[in-house]
Design a protein around this nucleic acid. Sequence first.
DNA 1: CAAATAAAGGACAATTTTGTCCGATTAATA
DNA 2: TATTAATCGGACAAAATTGTCCTTTATTTG
Lengths: 144, 144
Amino acid sequence: MFSKACEYGIRAAVYIALQSLEGRRVSVNEIAEEIDSPIAFTAKILQQLSRNNVIHSVKGPTGGFEIERTDMEAVKLNMVVKAIDGDQIYVGCGLGLKECDAGKPCPLHDKFVDIRTDLRHMLESTSLYELATGLEVGLTYLKR
Amino acid sequence: MFSKACEYGIRAAVYIALQSLEGRRVSVNEIAEEIDSPIAFTAKILQQLSRNNVIHSVKGPTGGFEIERTDMEAVKLNMVVKAIDGDQIYVGCGLGLKECDAGKPCPLHDKFVDIRTDLRHMLESTSLYELATGLEVGLTYLKR
DNA sequence: CAAATAAAGGACAATTTTGTCCGATTAATA
DNA sequence: TATTAATCGGACAAAATTGTCCTTTATTTG
């Protein structure tokens, strides 16, 4: 469904959100440790998220990654996914046809649109804040 | 969503079904031509489908691929997908965690299960016959 | 200002997926 | 039986994704 990069990206973003709730700024090393991901690869992904203003980065000692408390509810999962995988999930035919649309649909077009619409709504309506608070109260987990 | 191999596999299976409706057995070359896919790669995928009894192959002159008319309604998309991509779509955590389940869910677990359940139902309820007849009456298209 | 810390960025390496080529096998038919 | 047409299967090649390493840049603090 998601690429590995996107999986790491979402996990990282949620972890950063969780720590930002408590005012803590976190380093790549801590993030990779806590979400159990390859450090250098995770660093690359965080760069993409930072460049796309999904998260905020600060260089130097005491630096690291954070998400403004005020942004946290506004940042939805689809922004994370878009920053990493681009439009891939939203655009294009399920069977890989170049010219597939409502006017000249592939055999799976309608059914595929339904699934994808649900996915899009889910991603667009789920905020990092929501996911982070689920973690905070121990309803969900990020490791293993 | 699907791998390239799976996209080609579904397109090929639907095309074979369509031709089988008219009693025609088709060659790899014709299939690849008609669904606009790389020939040799398509041949590999057809072998997988054949080995998994999704389609039937006949060697030698006048040989090719076909689907028994009686099977065609019983063969659902999920069988095609499983033959090529395995359980990938059904199994595993959306965020890539190893031990994610209802008891120890990742932050996206429930929402992800919903989407995937819809996808599974769609794949399990859609037959090659249904897709082939849509093509036959000109409602849908396989090329470009 | 110097040292230390942390992200940024570029080059490279490993792995997986996608795709090709070619000889072996099977079966129809002249 | 020889030829020909077709799939099967293995080895290889190319491209994309995943992952590593190392240098540079920015920033804090002694």
